[in-house]
Amino acid sequence: MRTIAATRVLARTFTFGICLLTAGALARAAQDRAVAQPAAAPSGSQAAASGYVGEATCVGCHSLPAWQETTHARVFAHSRTAREERGCEACHGPGERHAADPSDPGGILRFGPKSRASTADQNTACLQCHEKGIRVTWQLGPHASRGVTCVNCHKVMETVSTKNLFAKATEMEVCFQCHQQRRGQIRRSSHMPFREQKMTCTSCHNPHGTANPKLLLTASVNEGCYSCHAEKRGPFLWEHAPVRENCLNCHDPHGSNHDKLLAAKRASLCQRCHVESRHPVTPHLATTRFVFNRSCQNCHSQIHGSNHPSGVRFQR
């Protein structure tokens, strides 16, 4: 009851907070719109005054045939905002000084490891258009706080992946640049269909930031697992407490050398928690039916939960 009461208080607090936030956001939006309006026409004397020279000036020196087929080139070809109309300068900033003296970077924003700009400044250039959708909490996420830039994972100036402008040919190759342990894990004998290109890291995670631990897409580990394994969602009449709390108590979704992505080999997996009586507390030989095949699940097959009135021991 105490939990429920606390829940209600927190729910009300958050609802109130959301309302406040929404009101603030809308007010801020109105303010931004009012402020942004005069700057929405970057042509002519205003553009020159702000240091923008226009894309035609850039392509006079910079020949980028690969760029023409990129997503951003297409977007800029159908610009809907004043910022997009700036073309190259929408991301790289005003080029007047650089155009006047090509040897002077002149405040042109470069991207990538050789850039002198901070990661925050580089990312801000991207976020001025992209800070919405799945990236709405980028600035609050762990990748941002660890100095990851957008161009660590994405390539804008040419197309190297079939989707999402990845900097590598595949999404997992992008993630494995830093998360190299995962590369080894998906090679294990028990694995989800990562190697077969039926799943990727973003099947479960949003690297741009989420409201959840481990950048999960869903509010809990289990809710993520249920998105494919809906049969295990229940609720069941007879529940197995560690199953209800966290699938990771028993499984390692990134890959395992044990059957069913288990975190440990059965029967040890079960015996770590069951010190009751008789067969769970016997160190059985490998040649007994308590160990071979599915071990404990040779009998307790409904270990994820049972809805059978006689299924209290997960055998029905």
Partner: peptide
Amino acid sequence: EYARGPSVL
């Protein structure tokens, strides 16, 4: 989603 400037709902 409704987004305006830096504000998103």
